[in-house]
C-alpha cells in the first residue's frame, strides 16, 4: 500500500561561500490522506527545506536536490522532484498547498484578500472575477472569518495576525488540495489564537480528508495534532515513529533531551530544567559521526567511541519506530531510568 506522499532519500543542499550546506540529508518519510505528520526540529535542523523542495519552492539555480518525492495521484504517481518544473507548478495550489509562519508578510499588501484568494481559484477554475470573489467569500466563511462577505474586499493590513493566517488557509484550500504543508503556522501567533488555528486545520483536514505535514519546533503543538512524528537534527531525521512512541518511548537521546528540557504548564514545582548542553551543529561540513554526539549525554555508553567516528543509520528499533542511534531500546530504558512500559 502506498501512501499519498512518499519521500525517499531526499537530499537538498546549497553551495555557499562558506561551503556546501547540507540542509536536508537523505530524508525519507510518508504521509497519507487524513493523516498528520509533524516534522520537528530547531532552526537549522533542515525541517523546512525538504518540504520547500517538494513544493518546488526552492531556488532552482542555487539548490542541488537528489532523491524522490512521489505523489500518488488518482491518475498515477508523479515524482515531484524529477518532474518538469512547469508540471509541478500546475500541482501547486491544486494538489498541494503550503502555508507559512508569518501571516503578516505572506499576503500581498496591495491586493484585497478576496482578490488574492480568487486569483488562486481562477488558476484552476473557469469563472468570472465575480465567481472568484464569491468563492473567496465562501472560503473566508469556512475558515471562520466573521461577516466574510463584507470582508472579501478588505486588505491584509485590516486583519489581525490570526485572521491573516485564516486567510492564508482559505487561499491554500480554495482548490481542495490533497496535501497541506504548514510551516510553523502558529509560531507567530498568540497562544489563544494558536489553539484556534490548530483546531481549524484539524477540522478542515477531517472535512476534506487531507494529508497534513506540520513543520514545527513546538513539541506541545506536536502532541496536540500529530499522528506521527519525524524528529530532525543536523539535516537528518534522527527519529521517526508514531506520536505515542515518540513521546513515551523515545529512542533517540536528542528527542529524550528535548522532552526533558522543556518546561510544562502542568508540571508544577521549581525543579531545575535538564538542559541539553552545547549548540546545534552548523549544516556546513558536519563532522564524521553522529551529529548529536558532541551534546549527547550517552556518548560514553557506546563502545569504541563509535559515536564520533561512525554515523549511525536510521534503523527500526521496534516495529515502525526508527531511530538514528547505536543504543538499543533496552539500553535507552536503563540509561533514562524510564519504565520499560511507560504509559
Amino acid at each position: 500500500m502506498s501512501k499519498f506522499l512518499e519521500v525517499k532519500n531526499l537530499s537538498v543542499s546549497f553551495p555557499t561561500e562558506d561551503g556546501l550546506v547540507k540542509a536536508s540529508n537523505d530524508v525519507s518519510y510518508s504521509v497519507d490522506l487524513g493523516e498528520t505528520l509533524a516534522i520537528v526540529g530547531e532552526s537549522g535542523s533542515g525541517k523546512s527545506v525538504s518540504n520547500l523542495a517538494i513544493m518546488g519552492l526552492h531556488n532552482p539555480t542555487m539548490t542541488q536536490i537528489s532523491g524522490s518525492a512521489w505523489l500518488n495521484l488518482p491518475d498515477g504517481p508523479i515524482d515531484v522532484i524529477s518532474a518538469p518544473a512547469e508540471k509541478v507548478r500546475r500541482l501547486r495550489g491544486k494538489v498541494m498547498s503550503m502555508i507559512f509562519q508569518d501571516p503578516m508578510s505572506a499576503l500581498h499588501p496591495y491586493y484585497s484578500v478576496g482578490n488574492q484568494i480568487a486569483e488562486a481559484w481562477s488558476l484552476y477554475n473557469d469563472g468570472s472575477k465575480r465567481d472568484g470573489m464569491a468563492r473567496a467569500a465562501e472560503m473566508l466563511d469556512l475558515v471562520g472569518i466573521p461577516s466574510a462577505k463584507d470582508r472579501v474586499k478588505d486588505f491584509p493590513h485590516q486583519f489581525s495576525g490570526g485572521m491573516r493566517q485564516r486567510v492564508m488557509i482559505a487561499m491554500a484550500l480554495v482548490n481542495n488540495p490533497s496535501l497541506l504543508i504548514a510551516d510553523e503556522p502558529t509560531t507567530a501567533l498568540d497562544v489563544t489564537v494558536q489553539s484556534q488555528i490548530l483546531k481549524l486545520i484539524q477540522e478542515i483536514q477531517k472535512e476534506f480528508n487531507m494529508a497534513v505535514i506540520l513543520i514545527t519546533h513546538d513539541l506541545g503543538v506536536v502532541a496536540e495534532v500529530a499522528d506521527k512524528v519525524c524528529v530532525m537534527y543536523g539535516g537528518k531525521i534522527v527519529e521517526n515513529a508514531g506520536i505515542d512512541e515518540i513521546f513515551y518511548r523515545s529512542q533517540h537521546p536528542y528527542t529524550i533531551g528535548l522532552l526533558d528540557s522543556i518546561p510544562r504548564v502542568d508540571k508544577l514545582g521549581s525543579h531545575r530544567l535538564k538542559a541539553i548542553p552545547g549548540q546545534p551543529p552548523s549544516l556546513i561540513g558536519l563532522p564524521t559521526g553522529c551529529a548529536f554526539a558532541p551534546r549527547c549525554e550517552f556518548v560514553s555508553q557506546v563502545a569504541g567511541s563509535l559515536c564520533t567516528t561512525q554515523n549511525p543509520d536510521l534503523s527500526e528499533k521496534t516495529t515502525g519506530h526508527f531511530s538514528r542511534c547505536f543504543l538499543e531500546p533496552e539500553q535507552i530504558v536503563t540509561l533514562t531510568g524510564r519504565k520499560a512500559s511507560a504509559k
Partner: peptide
C-alpha cells in the same frame, strides 16, 4: 525575496 512572492509561487502562478 518577500514572503508574499513565495505565497504567489505556492499558489501555482507562473
Amino acid at each position: 525575496t518577500e514572503d508574499y512572492i513565495r505565497t504567489a509561487r505556492a499558489k501555482g502562478l507562473s
